[in-house]
């Protein structure tokens, strides 16, 4: 009916207004480039996730040996220590959540492109979950930061971050940006054809 809402503060304006009178954000009825941005960030995230898994996350050296461990290697180590619960936390944060997020964002983008009318509530819920949970993948980066700062015992034992920590962090940041670029209002637009 010719109104446009500010997504930052909720203020409703007449159509055609470009800046919110309350919080000065830019007003956009729909972000037409939303899907393009989503795909760009998502693809960048997936590409960064590959070296994150193949290169070492941690470089450990002790008196006797030097070893490198990848994300999955770290999980397996934890299982061997008997810390199943913690292994599960790391596995969920570093593998299950990122991969689940890639799939969920792809599904959301494709279903909006096809103008799907099915499961709108379910898809909106999925979007909420993706947005809420994505940042928790950062856990592993922080684990690496603390371990490398803490375990610096001269020749006895040292832990240093591997290059995978950087690509993993990038992957998380890119997918967070992908989720934020997704305009959830597009899910609902098939209900009523908006005229722009």
């Amino acid at each position: 009916m010719g109104l446009v809402a500010c997504r930052n503060c909720g203020q409703v304006h007449q159509k055609g207004v470009t800046r919110c009178k309350r919080c000065e954000s830019v007003l956009q009825s729909r972000d037409h480039q939303s899907l393009q941005k989503v795909w760009a960030w998502l693809i960048a995230g997936i590409i960064a996730y590959i070296p994150a898994n193949t290169y070492p996350m941690l470089l450990t050296s002790t008196l006797l040996e030097r070893s490198e461990s990848t994300i999955m290697g770290g999980v397996v180590d934890l299982v061997n220590y008997g810390a199943i619960g913690i292994a599960l936390v790391v596995f969920i944060a570093s593998v299950a959540i990122p991969v689940g997020k890639f799939l969920a964002i792809m599904y959301l983008a494709i279903s909006v492109q096809r103008g799907s009318q099915r499961h709108q509530h379910g898809r909106h819920k999925a979007y909420d979950i993706v947005e809420f949970i994505g940042r928790w993948s950062m856990i592993d980066v922080f684990v690496v930061a603390i371990l490398s700062a803490l375990v610096q015992l001269d020749t006895l034992a040292t832990i240093n971050p591997g290059i995978a920590a950087v690509s993993f962090a990038l992957s998380v940041i890119f997918t967070m940006l992908a989720a934020q670029s997704f305009d959830a209002r597009l899910i609902w637009d098939v209900d009523r054809k908006t005229d722009d």
Binding site: V89, M138, V143
Partner: peptide, 22 residues
Amino acid sequence: PWSMAEIFIVGVTVALIKVAGM
């Protein structure tokens, strides 16, 4: 979403369990 103090503290806990044995 970019302020991650709570995630950091969970990361610290995981790291503590990793080194606690050594």
